[in-house]
């Protein structure tokens, strides 16, 4: 296995582990999770939505065909988390711990997207067919 792939897999595993933990907290309505989302006026719909998306992202990250999509989804959720911490919750205290964790996962996702950028060719092909010389007369 290439070093880049190895690094990517380590990050994927770590990120999905955090995502799964965070998702169980939200989906099982742990009090601290509920309190946090109430503070955001995002409870319960937002809590379930984010929890479900976190699970999906973790699954995608562990499926070889969709790693980059899982990372993109994880990146989006963590961007939201950073916004929440930045605008309402802050980075201090018990809740702040979650914010730091979100920042770490955000970085992890960004690195995975970069390492798996070749896979996102499929994204480009889906839209532009840029590598399809047979049909595209794209300039």
């Amino acid at each position: 296995m290439k070093p880049a792939n190895l690094l990517s897999w380590i990050l994927q595993l770590a990120v999905s582990a955090v995502l799964v933990m965070a998702a169980t907290g939200k989906l099982m309505s742990r009090p601290e999770s509920v309190a946090m989302f109430q503070q955001l006026d995002f409870d319960p719909g937002g809590r379930y939505l984010v929890g479900a998306l976190e699970l999906v992202a973790a699954l995608l990250l562990l499926t070889p065909q969709s790693i980059v999509w899982g990372a993109v989804l994880g990146w989006g959720i963590m961007t939201g988390a950073l916004i929440a911490h930045g605008s309402r919750l802050g980075f201090q205290g018990d809740e702040g711990q979650g914010g730091l964790m979100a920042a770490a996962v955000w970085i992890g996702c960004t690195v995975v997207i970069f390492l798996r950028r070749k896979q996102s060719q499929s994204l480009r092909r889906m839209f532009a067919r840029s590598d399809d010389e047979g049909r595209s007369d794209a300039p």
Binding site: L40, D41, F42, G45, G46, V72, W75, G76, I77, T79, G80, I83, A84, S87, R88
Partner: peptide, 21 residues
Amino acid sequence: FFAAGYYISFYFHILTVASLF
């Protein structure tokens, strides 16, 4: 969208993230 998310409802932040992407 960030402003909407901050002043109106946190749900708007879903759009904030999408537009950032």
